[in-house]
Amino acid sequence: MGTTWQLRFAAAPGVDPAQLRVAIVARLGTIIAEMSHWEAASRLSAFNRAPAGSWHRLPPDFAAVIAAALDIAEASGGAFDPTIGRIVAMRGFGAEPAPASPDAAAIDRARADAGWHRLAYDRGAQRLRQPGGVALDLSGIAKGYAVDAVAGLLEDFGIRHGLIEIGGELRGAGIRPDGDPWWVDLEDPPGAALPRLRIALHSLAVATSGDYRRGAHTIDPRTGRSTAHGLTSVSVLHDRAMQADAWATALTVLGPDEGFALATERHLAARFLWRADAGVVERITPALQAMIDG
């Protein structure tokens, strides 16, 4: 995934940290082998190369992510879309080098081949149909899923208290050995003079989408172009890191007005930051405010 992971935990009796590390690396390796668009041999890359009309039975991890991705694509009106892999690659954010500013006609052609609504997914049989020309890119949701997967692995090892972080996405469970919760500060863009907003991750995950991150690229799937509404960061808290990850991406695309309205409507705990003449402006949804007050 082009990033790092780290784990802090209160060890349960009999847990061997070295054995746990091996298990985590293997678990993440399975996810990468299924859903990495950087790996030519991944199941996702194979789907992207598949002929039109072909059906593909998905392994459990891939199936869980596709189901959630399609749900959030529909709920966000296409602001989150797992089918824009070709557009992402054309903008220079894929596995192969590409010009950062492709011509408009090329973007429009790639956008015509994309669209989450073109995918047919049989949830019962966990089969996905390649309609032809669709290139999946799950980078806006798979990292969050990986956080959830490691959290599940900890439970398998009998570990009930821990904090897992992958590339800035976090999920906490239980409490620290000193009795405190797993406190984390919501991520701020560089130079933002904002009061620190600290959240206790107790059975809770947080993901942040920001235009200041290394390699950040906020592409509106509905147009194929970069967003231009000035929103610099969205943090979303959810009980699942996968949903937090995808919703942070979708709300960043929608912007400070449309995104905030949708987050409020769906009772999402989110913080929006955007740049104004006076500096960085913060807006917090009612669901997040209730967490802070409570």
Rank of each mutant, 00 (worst) to 15 (best):
D188K: 14
D188I: 10
P190L: 11
P190Q: 12
P190N: 05
G191K: 07
A192M: 11
L194G: 07
L194E: 11
L194C: 04
L194I: 06
L194W: 04
L194F: 07
P195H: 04
P195N: 07
R196F: 10
L197E: 15
L197I: 13
R198T: 15
I199C: 05
I199N: 02
I199A: 01
L201W: 02
L201P: 05
L201D: 03
H202K: 11
H202L: 11
H202T: 15
H202V: 15
A207Y: 09
A207M: 07
A207H: 06
T208Y: 12
T208V: 09
S209W: 02
G210V: 05
G210A: 15
G210N: 06
Y212W: 15
R214M: 12
A216M: 13
A216K: 08
H217Q: 14
H217T: 03
T218S: 13
T218A: 14
I219L: 15
I219P: 03
I219G: 03
I219S: 03
D220E: 08
D220A: 04
P221S: 04
P221M: 07
P221L: 02
R222L: 00
T223G: 06
T223K: 10
G224F: 04
G224T: 03
R225W: 14
S226G: 12
T227Y: 01
T227Q: 08
A228Q: 14
A228M: 12
A228K: 12
H229K: 07
H229F: 04
G230V: 13
G230F: 09
G230A: 10
G230H: 08
G230C: 06
G230W: 10
T232S: 15
S233F: 00
S233D: 11
S233P: 03
S233M: 06
S235A: 15
S235Y: 00
S235I: 02
V236K: 02
V236M: 09
L237V: 08
D239K: 09
R240H: 10
A241V: 01
M242I: 12
M242A: 08
Q243H: 13
Q243V: 12
A244R: 07
A244H: 07
A244Q: 07
D245I: 06
D245S: 09
D245R: 04
D245F: 05
D245E: 11
A248Y: 10
A248D: 08
A248C: 13
A248F: 08
A248T: 07
T249N: 08
T249D: 08
T249I: 02
A250Q: 00
A250C: 04
A250N: 01
L251I: 02
V253N: 01
V253K: 00
V253L: 03
L254H: 00
L254E: 00
